[in-house]
Design a protein around this nucleic acid. Structure first.
Lengths: 140, 140
DNA sequence: GCCTTCGGTCTCTAATGTAGACCAGGTCTC
DNA sequence: GAGACCTGGTCTACATTAGAGACCGAAGGC
């Protein structure tokens, strides 16, 4: 086996291991950067929790999201195969978004994150106040 | 403030601290917005995977992070009680960051997200190319 | 006619992220 | 002993991006 062949075999064997979210130029990092975003995550959580929803329903569900960011995040999720966009040619137009299998998979990992944050929010808030107080007292 | 938001805020005040990441005004949403960020998540993942690390080690581990963002994210994590910052008064200075119990808890939820992204990155990339091709063809 | 609905897009401005210089202050080299 | 490191930041410009709100087209109601 030549060095070349060995290298190729190695690449095939460790194909998954080559992807590294910590590496700046890795495709998986690019994907991670898009998914590790509050709007994308909240959208996935909403679709996971409430099922298929229209654009305006999502906007209501995800409090504070602008139409622009909602559109942008949904496009990204759709483009990456996580979300399915269905247009009904009616007037006024009706567009329904739903999770695809890949998106459902991710949503099941993201949902616990939201629940954890709700559970621990007060604790973190308390820690902040303590930190700020200690810092203000120590700084003066 | 819309009527809807006011109603939601009211509910939050009267019901035993109903925290909701979907509500724009909720403290848990504020926390979520800070944690649902690529740098914060990568930092947590690195500390979880490699143990306590110095500032410069973290900067090397989390590829592409600027000193500014690393400092900012670490400060937030520290302030919220997720990360412990220890300064050793040597020269050159040595500062070590480590997970606190709360941060370790969160890191265990975040790590699977990174692994999932690495596992599915190629699939998502393929979906993108398909989407882009279909869109270019359909758009013309 | 004029207004409303829906799912966007466009524009303008405010905020945020990035790159890179700078800093203290002690050690190491020459 | 002058200079060139080293660390863990901060500060300053610049580029990118998020947010607010106007606009849009086609159908339907008043």
């Amino acid at each position: 086996m030549t060095t070349e062949e060995a290298a190729r075999a190695g690449v095939e064997q460790h194909e998954e291991l080559e992807l590294d979210v910590f590496a700046r130029l890795c495709p998986s990092r690019e994907m991670f950067a898009e998914l590790a975003d509050k709007w994308s995550m909240l959208i996935l959580m909403s679709l996971s929790a409430c099922g298929p929803q229209r654009f305006s329903e999502l906007q209501r569900a995800v409090g504070g999201v602008s139409r622009k960011m909602l559109t942008q995040s949904l496009r990204n999720l759709e483009r990456s195969g996580l979300v399915l966009r269905t247009v009904f040619p009616e007037t006024p137009p009706r567009v329904v978004y739903d999770l695809r299998p890949l998106g459902r998979e991710l949503a099941e990992l993201v949902a616990p994150l939201g629940r954890w944050t709700e559970r621990r929010a007060l604790q973190m808030l308390a820690a902040r106040e303590e930190f700020d107080a200690a810092h203000a007292g120590g700084g003066e």
